[in-house]
Design a protein around this nucleic acid. Structure first.
Length: 252
DNA sequence: AACATCAGCAACCGCCCCCGA
DNA sequence: CTCGGGGGCGGTTGCTGATGT
C-alpha cells in the first residue's frame, strides 16, 4: 500500500514558514490544541499540510523548546546516549528536556559526530561506564513483555515526562481546558519561553501590520484579560476567509 | 569586492507503527 | 482479522549566512 505524500495536494505551500503562519498556528493550537493534525491547517486557515504544521510546532513553535546553543553537558549527554541508543533521536530527545529530535540530529551530524570520531580511540573508561549505565537503564525501563525490537512509541511512553511530546499530548487532551479556561494569564508570553523574544517582538511590533490587520489591532487588548479568546476567534474567521478565498482562486 | 566553499539548520520525504472502524 | 488513516520517526535535502581565497 502506497500512500500519496501528504503535501501532494495542489496549492499547499511548502518551504520556510512566515511569521504570520507561525502566529496563526500558535493561536490555533493554544485555542484548540491539535487533536487532528491533518484537519488542523484547514481549520486554522493555513495553506500547509498537517504534517508540516506538526513539524513546525514540535520543532520550533512549541513553548517547551529550549533554544540556543547546546551546553557542554548536553553535548556530552547526547554523545553518551547516542552510543547507547544509536540513531534513536526521539529517545535521546526524551532525555534532554527542551530539545527536539531534529535539533539533536542536526547537532550530531554537524558537531558531535566529528568530535566522537576524533575521540573514538581515546574513549575514557568513565564514559564507557556511563554508556553501560544508560544501556542498563534502557533494559530496565523496557517492560518485560517488550523485546529489543520494541516499537518507538512504547519506548517513548516509558521515557521522560518532560519531553515536548508530553506537552503536545497535554495540549491535545486538554483541549477543553484550553477552550474553557483560556484567559490572558494562560496566554502570557512567559508561556512561550522557548521562542525568541525577537520572534514575538517582530510579530507584535507592528512590523507586519499591513499584513495582519486584525491581529495587530487587537494585540493591545491582550492584557485586559479573557477577551483574548474572542479576539482570536475573529482572527480565525479572518484567516478562514483568506483560506476559502484561496480555494476560490485556485479554481481559476 | 567578488566568488567559492563550508557549516548550520529548518523543512521535507518516505517509511513504519498504532489504533479504530 | 483486515484495512486504512493518522501520527511519529529517521534520513535527507536545500537554503542561508559565515568564512576563506
Amino acid at each position: 500500500m502506497v500512500r500519496a505524500p501528504c503535501c501532494a495536494k495542489m496549492g499547499l505551500k511548502k518551504g520556510p514558514w512566515t511569521h504570520d503562519e507561525d502566529l496563526i498556528l500558535i493561536n490555533y493550537i493554544n485555542l484548540h490544541g491539535h487533536p487532528n493534525w491533518r484537519a488542523l491547517p484547514k481549520l486554522a486557515g493555513l495553506l500547509r499540510c498537517g504534517k508540516s504544521c506538526r513539524l513546525r510546532w514540535t520543532n520550533y513553535l512549541n513553548p517547551d523548546i529550549k533554544r540556543g546553543n547546546f551546553s557542554r553537558e548536553e553535548e556530552e549527554m547526547i554523545i553518551q546516549l547516542h552510543s547507547a541508543m544509536g540513531n534513536r533521536w526521539s529517545a535521546i530527545a526524551a532525555r534532554l528536556p527542551g530539545r527536539t529530535d531534529n535539533e539533536i540530529k542536526n547537532v550530531w551530524h554537524t558537531h558531535l559526530k566529528k568530535r566522537v570520531n576524533s575521540n573514538s580511540n581515546s574513549k575514557t573508561s568513565e564514559s564507557k561506564e556511563k554508556v553501560e549505565e544508560i544501556k542498563e537503564q534502557e533494559s530496565v525501563e523496557l517492560s518485560p513483555f517488550e523485546t529489543n525490537s520494541s516499537t518507538r512509541t512504547s519506548y517513548n511512553e516509558i521515557d521522560s515526562p518532560q519531553t515536548s511530546s508530553t506537552y503536545n499530548s497535554s495540549v491535545t487532551t486538554s483541549t477543553n481546558a484550553y477552550d474553557e479556561n483560556l484567559c490572558m494569564d494562560d496566554m502570557d508570553l512567559k508561556n512561550f519561553p522557548g521562542i525568541d523574544d525577537e520572534f514575538w517582538s517582530e510579530i507584535f511590533s507592528g512590523e507586519n501590520s499591513g499584513e495582519l490587520p486584525v491581529v495587530q489591532e487587537n494585540i493591545g487588548q491582550f492584557p485586559s484579560g479573557c477577551g483574548y479568546e474572542s479576539i482570536l476567534h475573529d482572527d480565525m474567521d479572518f484567516w478562514f476567509n483568506v483560506f476559502t478565498r484561496g480555494d476560490e482562486l485556485k479554481q481559476f
